[in-house]
Simulated scan of single mutants.
Amino acid sequence: MILITEFMDEAWVEWLRGRAEVVYEPDLPDRPDDLSRLAAGARALIVRNRTQVRGPLLETGFSCVGRLGVGLDNIDMDGCASRGIEVFPAVGANTLSVAEYVVTTAAVLRRGAYLMRGAMEAGGWPRGLAGQGREMAGAVLGLIGYGGIAREAARLARAWGMEVVAADPYARDFEGAREATAAEVLAQADVVSLHVPLTDETRHLIDADALAAMKPGAVLVNAARGGVVDEAAVCAALRSGQLGGAALDTFETEPLGPDHPFAGVSNLILTPHIGGVTQEANARVSEMTARRVAEHLGL
């Protein structure tokens, strides 16, 4: 049996059903007892980012995990390796979706006018304020991390006439961007976008000190991992005006819950971890994952 614990393109769920028994219950992360019970009969798991593949779940006997996406911080990779459990992330399948999210949300924040609806509906006509928006052409996009998604974001940004700088101690090259240190990226960029995994090294990489080092009025985009950003520090920087805007797609706690720090903060776009999820990307991610799991199981 293949257990699918989060949403997947229906066509590829059906493709798998034509080859094996499939249990598809996309709300299982909210039902941990049912998740453990169903996993006990599974040959393979297919998950997104909310299913925690660790602890006792690893002892239930499945032989592989298909990851509908690329981040692996919800999967105990060492635990899987020690048990011979293969993990298949959908590398590259949602690259364009995330890259488009980066540049489009940055453009919305820099232009500013798209966030004026409330004032207009209240009877205002904030044309003077809206007219203070900034163009993307000639601005500097700073990328912290320079893997596949960052490179695609750089390509899109260059098409808009932006200059691109990037920092990544592990990058094989910096084609399409000017190499810089992380400190130089923060100091020079009009838009800072994060493209790093969540590790001990990167947790709260963007804290109060990093935000203070950014250009006044710069924009921050995080479609990587929530723990990379100190969320309270971002809110404080937005309130003070040091940060001109922010778009956050990932969070330390997902869903947010009642204790989040974002209420009443302006110039802030919040989206529910969907940077890599469009209809097209979901189909690509689902196809790649379904085929790799089926191949592993000999289906």
Results as ranks from 00 to 15, higher is better:
3 L>Y: 01
9 D>W: 06
11 A>H: 13
11 A>I: 08
19 R>A: 09
20 A>Q: 10
33 D>W: 03
35 L>R: 00
42 A>G: 06
49 N>Q: 10
50 R>G: 01
56 P>W: 00
57 L>E: 01
59 E>I: 05
61 G>D: 11
67 R>W: 01
71 G>P: 02
75 I>N: 00
75 I>W: 00
76 D>K: 00
78 D>L: 15
89 P>V: 07
89 P>Q: 03
91 V>E: 14
94 N>F: 03
94 N>I: 05
99 A>L: 05
102 V>Y: 04
110 R>W: 14
116 M>Y: 15
132 Q>Y: 08
133 G>K: 06
134 R>Q: 11
139 A>V: 12
149 I>S: 04
157 A>T: 11
162 M>Q: 09
163 E>S: 15
166 A>S: 11
168 D>G: 09
172 R>A: 13
172 R>H: 13
180 A>G: 11
186 L>D: 05
191 V>K: 03
192 V>T: 08
193 S>D: 10
200 D>T: 08
204 H>W: 13
206 I>L: 14
206 I>M: 12
216 P>L: 13
220 L>S: 03
222 N>H: 05
223 A>N: 00
239 R>Y: 09
241 G>F: 08
245 G>A: 02
246 A>G: 08
251 F>T: 00
259 D>M: 03
262 F>G: 01
264 G>M: 00
265 V>R: 03
269 I>E: 00
275 G>R: 01
283 A>N: 03
289 T>E: 02
294 A>C: 06
296 H>D: 03
299 L>M: 10
